[in-house]
Amino acid sequence: MNNPDVQSTDASELSPEQRLEPPNTRLITAGIVTISDMETLRACVAYENANQQRVQILRRLENRASEIRSQND
């Protein structure tokens, strides 16, 4: 059943905070996997460095950067 209070959001419209601060780790993973450009990825790295500085999340972002680079080659 759809919840009328929840707005549908395109993954490309998510802020770094929305990608990296959800209530569970599976949503963090989904937020990182759906990053499709380096500008968004850099914003997420900057957000993480300024706030939580979680090594595991920064590694995931680094891995995603490598994936994006290899797709652009």
Results as ranks from 00 to 15, higher is better:
21 E>W: 04
38 M>I: 15
43 A>I: 05
25 T>P: 00
48 E>T: 04
56 Q>P: 02
65 A>E: 14
9 T>Y: 03
13 E>T: 00
24 N>H: 09
67 E>H: 08
17 E>H: 11
43 A>S: 14
16 P>H: 08
28 I>S: 03
46 A>R: 07
48 E>N: 00
66 S>N: 11
22 P>A: 10
72 N>Q: 15
73 D>T: 01
9 T>V: 14
33 V>I: 14
69 R>Y: 08
31 G>I: 06
1 M>D: 08
47 Y>N: 03
32 I>F: 09
22 P>W: 12
73 D>V: 04
70 S>H: 13
6 V>N: 09
47 Y>C: 06
16 P>Q: 12
34 T>W: 08
14 L>M: 11
46 A>P: 01
20 L>T: 05
6 V>A: 07
41 L>A: 09
7 Q>S: 10
54 R>T: 11
69 R>W: 06
19 R>H: 03
71 Q>K: 11
33 V>D: 15
56 Q>C: 03
66 S>Q: 09
38 M>T: 11
47 Y>S: 10
55 V>S: 09
66 S>E: 13
34 T>N: 15
37 D>F: 10
12 S>C: 00
24 N>E: 13
5 D>T: 04
6 V>M: 12
47 Y>M: 04
37 D>Y: 03
9 T>D: 08
40 T>W: 07
63 N>P: 00
2 N>R: 07
10 D>W: 00
41 L>R: 12
39 E>Q: 13
37 D>N: 15
51 N>K: 12
19 R>E: 01
11 A>C: 06
69 R>S: 10
61 L>P: 00
25 T>A: 13
46 A>G: 02
